[in-house]
């Protein structure tokens, strides 16, 4: 009974994480509603109080410009202030603390739990986990992601973190490099996300056994091995919430910002930027967990993406159902250490 409640609680937590991505859009909408509401009770305006004139000026009503500057067609735009408050407020501050907290949590996890080692001895028999096309798709996505994440974080936090270290002139040069890298890598990231999602969606569909993983929290704290098919529930969560929802959201809003002059207004770009930056912070926070477990956090986890082959022991311990299925599907491989196999496949 209590295990069912815990399952529900975990699902609710997951929903909160997804919900956060949509929060800026909702908040911007409610701010507009608030402005409309105050304007609606215009009947209460006191004589001599000219606030309504300013409100209508900010709404841009009945305004015209003979020689319109390309940038602007209204007297005062208030949305910029909303954008500033969100960008300099929650996104920079909460976002920064969130990333720091995730990093500290991973360090603590490593110190307390240690590396997740193989329990059995490696058999030396290898099973193919990712073929060459899949690995190419993954590493294209991974490299573009890291470039974008680092350059994006430079633009958001550099003023507070890097300027004090390297100075104003050097940072300006560095930030220009970051901006151009970010703008040029962005479209490639979006394209590779789409390819990646199509390639891996099928094996990431939720399966009955995932309930067990949720109930045992993946055995992350207990050290118990929970069986799964090709991907366990943790990987699936990273896939659906990280790559699919946040990746496509951040990628699509990035394209809106990257290619101005296609009819998007400044307000569209402000909203796109808030979703882009907020989503990217969550995406980076999740990616830290993925990168940790894929590299230093678990013995043998890197092999699958490096060489394409994993040891049978690793497969049995971490993906038991998939192991039983794949063992029969893959032709028997000669016993060889993973490194030799890696060079052989190139």
């Amino acid at each position: 009974m209590s295990s069912r409640i815990i399952t529900w609680l975990r699902a609710a937590l997951l929903a909160c994480v997804v919900g956060l991505a949509g929060a800026p859009a909702w908040a911007a909408g409610s701010a507009e509603a608030a402005v409309a509401a105050t304007a609606a009770d215009g009947g209460l305006i006191q004589p001599g109080n000219n606030a309504e004139a300013f409100r209508s000026a900010r709404r841009g009503e009945h305004q015209s410009i003979t020689f319109a500057a390309p940038a602007d067609r209204m007297l005062i735009q208030s949305e910029g202030q909303t954008w500033r408050m969100w960008r300099n407020g929650p996104i920079t501050q909460w976002g920064g603390w969130l990333l720091a907290a995730v990093f500290v949590a991973l360090v603590l996890f490593r110190l307390i739990r240690g590396r997740i080692d193989l329990e059995g001895a490696p058999t030396g028999r290898l099973i193919e986990r990712f073929n060459r096309v899949e690995r190419t798709a993954h590493w294209t996505l991974a490299v573009t992601f890291v470039v974008l994440a680092l350059s994006g974080l430079t633009l958001l936090f550099g003023k507070h973190v890097i300027i004090p270290l390297i100075g104003y002139d050097a940072f300006s040069w560095f930030a220009r490099l970051a901006k151009n890298l970010h703008n040029l890598t962005g479209p490639l990231f979006f394209a590779s996300t789409v390819v990646f999602v199509l390639m891996f969606a099928r094996d990431n569909v939720w399966q009955a056994i995932d309930a067990l993983w949720i109930r045992k929290a993946g055995g992350l704290l207990t050290g118990e091995h929970v069986p799964s098919w090709r991907f366990n529930f943790g990987e699936k969560t990273w896939f659906w919430i990280g790559v699919v929802i946040l990746g496509l959201l951040v990628g699509a809003t990035g394209l809106i910002l990257d290619f101005p002059g296609n009819g998007q207004t400044r307000q569209d770009m402000q909203l796109a930027h808030l979703i882009h930056a907020g989503g990217a912070i969550l995406f980076i926070a999740l990616s830290l967990g993925h990168i940790y477990i894929g590299t230093v956090g678990m013995e043998g986890a890197m092999d699958g993406m490096k060489s394409g082959y994993v040891d049978e022991t690793w497969a049995r311990e971490h993906h038991e159902y998939w192991y039983r299925q794949a063992k029969d599907a893959t032709p028997a491989r000669p016993a060889a250490p993973p490194r030799a196999a890696a060079s052989a496949t190139r």
């Binding site: 940038a71 910029g80 202030q81 954008w83 300006s172 901006k179």
Partner: peptide
């Protein structure tokens, strides 16, 4: 000299003061 042409001032300004000459590909500022 230090401006990187990101356009953030253009998003934030209430009066539409900051403007950018178009430069290079992709509507780069």
């Amino acid at each position: 000299d230090a401006c990187i042409g990101c356009g953030y001032c253009f998003y934030a300004c209430p009066f539409g003061a900051p403007q950018f000459p178009q430069e290079g590909a992709f509507g780069q500022r």
